[in-house]
């Protein structure tokens, strides 16, 4: 379908081009990054931005469709972080290693602290029952 060269159509097409560039960069990121967590942040953030830009551009090409396209954008904006968070948490719980240069693992620190606290309270309560 050929589009006329109105300014609105041009803006929409350029937005679509930028969005698809971000989609491509997200796909490049999951190949280039060293470990799963880096891959996830490249793959999720870049593709979410690319999705929003592409859909907004296509919505400017078809202004009558904007409400439905905004609905799809909102859905992606809500569900994409949830799914990648669940995936990252599952991988971390399963003990997938971080990349070699990583310096900080706060989730592991928190889990260790909670385990230590629970062991301590269990030991003290056990003593209380004995006494």
């Amino acid at each position: 379908m050929t589009m006329p060269d109105t300014p609105l159509n041009l803006i929409g097409a350029v937005l679509t081009l930028f969005g698809s560039m971000f989609l491509f960069l997200g796909a490049l990121g999951i190949i280039r990054m060293p470990d799963l967590y880096n891959k996830m942040q490249a793959g999720t953030k870049a593709t979410t931005l690319g999705n929003i830009l592409t859909l907004m551009g296509l919505g400017l090409l078809m202004p009558g469709w904007l409400p439905k396209i905004v609905l799809i954008i909102l859905f992606v904006l809500i569900t994409n972080p949830i799914s990648s968070h669940a995936l990252a948490r599952a991988a971390h719980k399963a003990g997938l290693p971080l990349a070699k240069g990583s310096v900080l693992d706060q989730l592991r620190e928190d889990e260790d602290a909670i385990a230590a606290f629970e062991a301590e309270t269990q030991a003290s309560s056990g003593k209380g029952v004995d006494g």
């Binding site: 997200g26 296509l58 396209i69 995936l87």
Partner: peptide, 29 residues
């Protein structure tokens, strides 16, 4: 498996704008 799951996530996220582009190309909402 987790690496493949991330790749699948990204693949579906790229395919969805392509579907919307197909809708614009065909002119059917």
């Amino acid at each position: 498996a987790p690496n493949r799951a991330v790749a699948l996530d990204v693949l579906t996220l790229i395919t969805m704008p392509l579907l919307v582009g197909l809708a614009v190309h065909a002119g059917r909402i």
